[in-house]
């Protein structure tokens, strides 16, 4: 079943502003989709349209069977959770558990249920021991995991990460990727990961490249990354591993066009011996 679908969606930020001319995009239930694109390609706008922080000019957006309109915004936001970019600007409370409870309180859940949801959400992001900690004293990666927990407490079916790793250090990025990957596999949450780090796209089942408000490439991550010339025209580079294998080939080594580190290492070893 389709978890989310954009049908002929058009949107503009007003005269002369950024514009999405016509967007068709969908994600299946339980799928992990990466959306790639350089700055201003429209990927964050897509996230905002998906839970109606922005309203499309025309076309329709469906979340499972529901067509988004102003009446069902509230229900749709329960099903589509968005984690934003800046770890400092999306927590409401000072204490971890208070912040995780925020969403669950907003939808009017009973107290005991909120408690259970906090347990679940913090365990899912591996932050249970920080339940009573001050958010301002956590690292960027930890703050972002709290933000994910805050979204998880609403038990969403779809989770959109809008460049949620962009402001983190490599360690924080890895923490988030691990958590998201696990949520997708174990909790069967549909994940849409918006990023400009090519490595992160390797986790996904499918990658989509956006440019100027349009989808210009689509396929499995390895398919996408095998078309490096085309990627370059959209100002995107290969993941480090792809770049290495490409350079080795240019230098005359017979390695395949792979994004698998183990495989490449074996091939290099075979060439050298």
């Amino acid at each position: 079943m389709r978890a989310i679908e954009f049908r002929d969606v058009a949107f503009s930020y007003g005269e002369g502003g950024f514009r999405i001319p016509k967007l068709n995009f969908s994600a299946e239930e339980g799928e992990f989709v990466a959306i790639l694109g350089h700055n201003g390609s429209g990927k964050s706008t897509l996230a905002r349209l998906a839970n109606r922080l922005l309203e499309p000019d025309s076309g329709e957006i469906r979340v499972f069977d529901t067509v988004l309109d102003e009446k069902n915004v509230y229900d749709v936001r329960r099903r589509v959770g968005v984690v934003f970019q800046n770890p400092d600007n999306q927590t409401v409370a000072s204490i971890v558990e208070d912040d995780v409870a925020f969403g669950a309180e907003n939808v009017g859940l009973p107290r005991e249920e909120i408690g259970r949801r906090i347990d679940f959400a913090l365990a899912a992001v591996d932050m249970s021991e920080y339940r009573h900690a001050m958010i301002s004293r956590l690292s960027g990666g930890q703050k972002q995991r709290v933000a994910i927990a805050g979204v998880l407490a609403l038990k969403p079916d779809i989770m959109i990460l809008d460049e949620s790793t962009a402001m983190l250090d490599p360690r924080g990025r890895k923490e988030i990727c691990d958590v998201v990957d696990r949520l997708n596999r174990e909790e069967k949450i549909t994940v849409i990961l918006i990023t400009h780090f090519m490595e992160e796209a390797l986790l996904a089942d499918r990658a989509v490249v956006m440019n100027r408000g349009e989808i210009v490439m689509e396929g499995t991550p390895s398919e996408i990354f095998s078309r490096h010339e085309e990627l370059l025209t959209y100002n995107l580079a290969l993941p480090r591993i792809g770049e290495i294998s490409q350079r080795l080939r240019e230098g005359g080594m017979s390695v395949s066009d792979t994004l698998d580190i183990e495989k490449l290492a074996e091939e290099i070893a075979a060439c050298v011996s």
């Binding site: 922080l53 509230y74 968005v82 934003f84 999306q90 208070d98 309180e105």
Partner: peptide
């Protein structure tokens, strides 16, 4: 900018003010 970000994050988590809200503590 911070206010706008925070507003988006709150709305995304179904915040509509005091109505219907329950409290954990």
């Amino acid at each position: 900018r911070i206010a706008e970000d925070l507003g988006d994050a709150m709305e995304s988590r179904c915040y509509v003010g005091g109505k219907k809200r329950t409290k954990y503590k």
